[in-house]
Design a binder for these strands. Structure first.
Length: 823
DNA sequence: AGCACGCCGACT
DNA sequence: GTCGGCGTGCTC
């Protein structure tokens, strides 16, 4: 869909002015010639039918790390502001696709005109636009960066031939004046493909208003080979056979497929074509296959809270989804839309299984759509088009789905709202639930948090809450701190390692249970803290662990190189001869990765297959998955990555080899994260309650105790909520991390002081500004980062203080207003 | 992000 | 004398 600019009519007098201007200023020098900084021609014309249209300006976000830029509405554009629609705009001698984010400002800037409007309905939801503008204003993250991080489809509309872009000269305009610049191909008054012309002069003509352009969406096509009844030359016997195969199939997608079907060489097929007995045909491509919805969930009464923001946690996931499905159904039944956001592929898959059938039973015209980056481009585009046309009213997806142009949104569901997977690692450093919250507020749409464990931030009194009773739990704790020494050598011969207190990584209890699991033909999961072989070393005498000299993190042991290495900055050193604190001459190895634990498990159970599953090595687990009920034993040694896989069917044991890894992190969310992990382990298997065996030096940690005592998932989180009140951590305050970095340390340090001073002069108190301090990673990619932490009572106050940073510093200043990790 | 301009080392 | 390193700045 497009709005042709055919109404652009420029009378001969104006064209004459332009001709004069062309002769004065060479069009190709436009961007570099300072004389061209003044507008060469401003079409100050009134279209008699639609007065004042040319003065309208639109703010357009582009998929670049820049703010939204203002553009003039297309010449002769009729109608209201196309908020959320994609537009084609001129950008640096070329064209870009952007999204209309709102009215433009009062800029006196020499605005270019929007070239074309691609959509007659929004491509991006209004709530997302509002949330983006709000977040960008607070965080100073460029709007375009947010857009390119979250809009997963449609901004590449100018590539891949999706649109036919045609141009022609405005009636009466003679573009041959550009002759030299255009070369031999000069646009005339006849439509022609834009690709026929050189981009630079084309943009100059565009800027002068002498070009009409249109973008026509091309139907997707596939080419197939079809037989012809007669050719130009007779066929050989083999060719005859190939032709008959094609005749029988009707059509085939490629020569190779055809050759394969006929069991002849490709040359035979080519011969049939050469003799004119078959030809290529372009056909409209069938719509891509999209994920099919599951069966409708059971119908139950809707017992969930009716509130602006509510939460549902605990229990097992099918219980939560069953309750949630009732609410979603009620909203869809009255013709409204629902958006469900998941943090990762595993949660998304479960949500789709349990919720996508909600619309299957009732009105046939409404369908659920799954949306994530895992879809192909074609699938994503098809899904988006369906949402845009209103054929889809339930969208279940990752954070990318926040941009979906659902109209009349009645409910926004954020699944597992505390998941770290929601924190984007890309430039915008967004936290998806934060955007969802802003969207829901902007649209006045109810917001729901649903998951295994509530985030501490979800426990504020204004959020109506429901926590289901926990599933049955069988828990056994191995308390390393209380155990006596156990003579067992670590695997690192050559360096002196004192054996760990109780057998490590497999304690006696764990070893015993593992043997039982193997004997009974069941399956076990051993959770390792890290992948590979990476271990920490620790002085058995004083507990000292060598740390990186640049960073505030422990060095990791590398088996192959026999070196200690910093996993943040790459610093390496040999294993020290003695403890630098107490002089002890032996080390213990702790916190090994999957590699070591797998080796130990094989030693223990030589007859049982041991698999590894982590980012480095993902063994094929299908033997275990296909083995339900067949006594196929196996041990999987894995990192947390395993939780994104379906549970092992005959799972009898989950061993957490060293729980402390999740606690020894300098992050105020560490224990919340640890608690969440324990709860996720207890509900990994959808129906069974495998024994959860936790090895730890902190056997009385309250998170672990709350699980052991069978308390529901909300209890421990509630205690964290109270603890955070003291330190004014979220949700009792708002945090923001300002990262100041520069190439030279002195400059970074000075700029960080400067930033802190700017915050103080913006009114900050010493209780609100923490730092500046060198980042835990002393040097990162040749830059020295410094951190200034802001802790304010609320977001309005944060915004007020951050305004003090609206000037330039002699270093890069980045603000993360939803910091996660590393605090 | 690109892509330009701009100011200091090794080459036809 | 030029080619070229990537540092800083702009894009409506």
């Amino acid at each position: 869909m497009l709005f042709p600019l055919a109404s652009a009519r420029i009378d001969s007098e104006v064209r004459q002015i332009n001709r004069n201007l062309y002769q004065t200023f060479h069009p190709l020098r436009r961007h570099t010639d300072p004389r061209m900084s003044a507008p060469p021609f401003t079409p100050d014309l009134e279209d008699p039918a639609h007065p004042s249209k040319v003065t309208r300006t639109w703010a357009v976000a582009l998929p670049l790390p820049v703010a939204a830029y203002d553009f003039a509405a297309p010449h002769g554009f009729v109608g209201p502001l196309p908020l959320g629609s994609r537009v084609v705009v001129p950008w640096q001698n070329g064209l870009l696709v952007g999204v209309v984010m709102g009215e433009g400002g009062q800029s006196a800037h020499n605005l270019r005109e929007v070239v074309a409007v691609l959509d007659d309905k929004p491509w991006v939801g209004a709530g997302f636009i509002a949330a983006t503008l709000q977040f960008a204003a607070l965080s100073r993250v460029p709007v375009g960066l947010i857009l390119s991080d979250l809009l997963g489809v449609g901004l590449g509309a100018l590539s891949h031939g999706r649109y036919l872009h045609r141009v022609r000269a405005v009636a009466g305009a003679d573009l041959s004046l550009f002759g030299a610049a255009f070369g031999s191909a000069v646009p005339t008054e006849a439509w022609a493909a834009a690709s026929d012309f050189i981009a630079g002069p084309l943009d100059a003509a565009r800027e002068q208003g002498l070009l009409q352009e249109e973008f026509v969406l091309q139907p997707r096509q596939v080419t197939v080979y079809r037989p012809k009844d007669a050719g130009t030359q007779p066929l050989t016997p083999r060719q005859q056979h190939a032709w008959q195969v094609l005749q029988g199939a009707g059509q085939l997608p490629s020569q190779s497929a055809w050759a394969q079907a006929a069991q002849v060489s490709p040359g035979v097929v080519a011969g049939v074509l050469a003799r004119g007995w078959a030809a290529l045909h372009d056909l409209p491509a069938p719509p891509p296959e999209l994920p099919t919805a599951s069966l409708p969930p059971l119908q139950r009464p809707d017992t969930l809270p009716e509130a602006a923001v509510w939460r549902l946690h605990g229990g097992r996931d099918h219980e939560r989804y069953l309750l949630l499905a009732q609410r979603i159904r009620r909203r869809l039944e009255v013709g409204r839309s629902v958006l469900v956001i998941a943090p990762d592929a595993a949660t998304l898959r479960r949500a789709w299984e349990h919720l996508s059938g909600v619309v299957g039973s009732g009105a046939g015209d409404t369908q659920a759509a799954l949306f994530s980056g895992a879809l192909s481009d074609v699938q994503r585009e098809e899904t988006w088009a369906r949402i845009q046309r209103g054929e889809v009213r339930l969208v279940i997806g990752t954070g990318l789905a926040l941009t979906a142009p659902l109209s009349d949104l009645a409910l926004l569901v954020v699944l597992e709202e505390g998941s770290d997977a929601y924190k984007l690692l890309s430039g915008s450093a967004l936290f998806i639930p934060d955007m969802a919250r802003r969207m829901a507020t902007a649209l006045a749409t109810p917001l729901a948090y649903v998951g295994c464990v509530p985030a501490v931030e979800s426990l504020t009194p204004d959020i109506a809450g429901l926590v289901l009773p926990p599933p049955r739990i069988r828990l056994h704790i191995v308390d390393y701190a209380a155990q006596s020494h156990q003579p067992e050598l670590g695997p690192l011969s050559g360096v002196q390692f004192r054996p760990d207190k109780q057998g490590y990584p497999l304690s006696h209890d764990l070893a015993q249970v593992l043997r039982q699991v193997a004997e009974r033909g069941r399956q076990a999961l051993l959770l390792a803290p890290r992948r590979g072989y990476s271990a920490l070393i620790r002085c058995p005498n004083c507990e000292h662990t060598p740390h990186c000299r640049n960073c505030d993190i422990p060095l990791r042991l590398h088996q192959v190189t026999r070196q200690l290495e910093c996993h943040q900055c790459g610093y390496q050193q040999g294993i020290p001869e003695r403890c630098e604190v107490c002089g002890e001459m032996m080390w213990q190895a702790r916190g090994p990765g999957t590699e070591w634990i797998a080796a130990e498990a094989r030693k223990l159970l030589p007859a049982t297959p041991v698999y590894r599953f982590d980012k480095d090595q993902q063994d094929d687990l299908s033997a275990l998955y296909n083995a339900a009920g067949s006594n196929t034993s196996g041990v999987v040694v894995a990192t947390q990555a395993i939780l994104s896989q379906p549970a092992l069917p005959d799972l009898a044991l989950i061993g957490v080899t060293l729980a402390d890894t999740w606690l020894n992190v300098s992050d105020f969310r560490a224990s919340e994260r640890y608690h969440r992990l324990l709860r996720q382990l207890t509900e990994w298997h959808p129906t069974r309650a495998p024994l959860l065996l936790v090895q730890t030096f902190q056997a009385t940690h309250p998170a672990l105790e709350s699980v052991a005592q069978g308390l529901d998932a909300g209890v421990y989180v509630q205690s964290e909520y109270q603890l955070r009140r003291v330190l004014k951590y979220p949700p009792h305050g708002t945090l923001a991390q300002v990262v100041v970095s520069a190439r030279e340390q002195a400059r970074a340090s000075a700029a960080a002081d400067d930033v802190a001073a700017a915050l103080y002069s913006a009114g900050a108190t010493s209780a609100e500004v923490l730092g500046p301090a060198p980042s835990p990673v002393a040097r990162l990619k040749g830059m020295y980062p410094y951190h200034v932490l802001l802790r304010t009572r609320d977001e309005a106050r944060l915004s007020e203080l951050l305004r003090g940073l609206n000037r330039s510093f002699k270093a890069r200043v980045r603000v993360d207003v939803v910091p996660r990790g590393g605090l």
